[in-house]
């Protein structure tokens, strides 16, 4: 805002406060409910009076549910998918910006397609492929019965990735936002940098590792955090691709917390809310720990 008058400032502040209240109210509700015991909850229903059973509830979550194991699963899936996406973004952007191949237009098209067609839209084909990674190979080999004529039987390779970390994480990598971000960042670097490294005798790979990677620390780290959280809260794909509860991720596991009891019972909401807090805490801690690194990384990459 260019104008700086008191009435505008006051209005803006009030609007922001109202927005904060709107956003934070459910969170307050979650935290308060998590502090009540199941007994209190059954007696009073939802209430805004904090109870004293928060740590008890957490202990219950820890000891009685699969959430700790599922939180670990989430960590693995989110880490692997975020790392993979950063790696792909970095290397693809490097190729596009520094080598400008003639087919870079096709890379852009693929990147855009992956953004416009998210995994959630392709759940069924993605599930089929995850159920048998070799399926596309089989399909190509058996085109027009080619394989059968040559070898007597159709090709039928099998590699099932359902219920594995790889099956949960790898399809999450197929999304190109990170590539666009890294392309934009690389374009801000001085072009002579690559020339200087070439004259210094550095191979393209060496330039990437020695020069480009250290310079990209800030953007890569921010991207990683962003994608890690994306992987952490992914719901649809883990729900579809993982069926065994002890391989499931925490966000999906949370919804299963109410199914432990009989049909007619009122769900243990305090327990669920405590679980929700536990599951949310990990990305929060991650941001808190790396916040300064991210900011410093962005400042260091001075032009």
């Amino acid at each position: 805002m260019i104008e700086d008058t008191r009435s505008i400032n006051t209005t803006a502040t009030l609007l922001l406060l109202a927005g904060c209240a709107f956003v934070l109210a459910p969170l307050v509700f979650v935290v308060i409910t998590a502090t009540q015991s199941y007994g209190d909850f059954l007696r009073n229903n939802f209430s805004l009076v904090p109870g004293t059973h928060f740590f008890e509830n957490l202990q219950q979550v820890w000891e009685l549910t699969l959430l700790p194991r599922q939180t670990f699963n989430s960590f693995v899936v989110a880490f692997v998918s975020a790392f993979g996406r950063c790696f792909l973004a970095f290397t693809t952007a490097y190729a596009v910006v520094f080598f400008a191949p003639r087919y870079s237009i096709f890379i852009y098209a693929a990147v855009l397609a992956s953004i416009m067609l998210p995994l959630d839209l392709m759940v069924i084909p993605a599930y089929q492929v995850a159920a048998n990674v070799a399926m596309p190979i089989n399909a190509v080999a058996n085109l027009g019965g080619a394989w059968e004529t040559l070898f007597g039987a159709p090709l039928d390779l099998q590699l099932n990735l359902l219920n594995t970390y790889a099956g949960a994480a790898i399809p999450l990598m197929a999304q190109g936002t990170g590539t666009l971000i890294m392309v934009q960042y690389f374009k801000t670097l001085p072009v002579d940098l690559a020339k200087a490294a070439t004259l210094d005798g550095a191979s393209p790979l060496r330039f990437m590792v020695d020069i480009l990677l250290p310079l990209s620390k800030g953007p890569l780290l921010s991207l990683f955090i962003y994608l890690f959280i994306g992987g952490w809260v992914a719901y649809m794909w883990p729900l579809v691709s993982i069926s065994s509860p002890d391989m499931q991720t925490a966000v999906v596991g949370l919804t299963a917390l109410d199914s432990g009891m009989g049909e007619d019972e009122i769900p243990n909401f305090p327990l669920q809310m405590a679980g929700a807090i536990m599951v949310t805490a990990i990305p929060l801690v991650l941001i808190a720990l790396t916040q300064r690194l991210i900011v410093r990384g962005l400042v260091l990459s001075e032009k």
Binding site: P190, D192, A196, L300, S301
Partner: peptide, 23 residues
Amino acid sequence: LAMVFQNYALYPHMSVADNIGYA
């Protein structure tokens, strides 16, 4: 041969010594 560039093209994350000695 060696080259000196218009916008210096120094490696920003390296010390002066490392810049000079990279080759």
